[in-house]
């Protein structure tokens, strides 16, 4: 099977083109379907999130809202303007505390409760997820007050950006 140089070249370019096209297609498809948007409790309250769609919920853990029942934990995520009850089964990150920022991934069920399957935390006591900071700022909840834990968390979070801390989910159920 003697191929001319030109044919060889064409067949190779064709093959490469096909692989790249498939790759591009996969990437575009995945970018449409497999990314998770960050939402605040207010966004959820305003019904901009369809039930069952995976979201990342960010806000503060409301003071006094943590209720542990065995390995299941119920808590309320707030951004000042709206609250959303959440539930999570598993071991929470070390730094999951009331009044602190939290980012959880999961879906809002028909019961209106957010079912988290992943709760994220950075390994620093001052960590405030950047999305939470910005969402809180947008809601006007952001004040530079001495007793507002959020206010102290944020500048520190910027500083710790240089730390060698892996920002990995610290807790997750599979």
């Amino acid at each position: 099977m003697a191929m001319t140089r030109k044919q060889r070249r064409l067949s190779m370019i064709g093959g490469a083109g096909a692989v790249l096209a498939v790759a591009a297609g996969l990437i575009l498809y995945a970018l449409k379907d497999e990314i998770v948007f960050f939402q605040s409790p207010s966004d959820v309250a305003e019904h901009t999130v369809p039930h069952g769609q995976r979201i990342r919920l960010g806000g503060l853990v409301k003071d006094g809202s943590i209720d542990r029942q065995g390995e299941t934990v119920r808590f309320v995520v707030t951004d000042g303007a709206a609250d959303l009850s959440a539930t999570y089964t598993g071991i929470l990150p070390d730094l999951f505390r009331e009044g602190q920022g939290v980012v959880a991934e999961g879906t809002v069920g028909n019961d209106g409760i957010f079912h988290a399957d992943t709760v994220l935390a950075k390994h620093d006591e001052n960590y405030m997820p950047k999305e939470v900071v910005e969402a809180l700022k947008a809601r006007g909840e952001w004040q530079m007050g001495a007793d507002n834990p959020a206010a102290k968390g944020a500048p520190a979070a910027d500083k710790t950006s240089q730390a060698e801390t892996p920002s990995a989910p610290a807790s997750r159920t599979n």
Binding site: M144, A146, P155
Partner: peptide, 12 residues
């Protein structure tokens, strides 16, 4: 804050 009198400090 490296010597900066921030809003938070001013309040105090």
């Amino acid at each position: 804050n490296d010597g900066v009198v921030t809003a938070e400090a001013r309040e105090a």
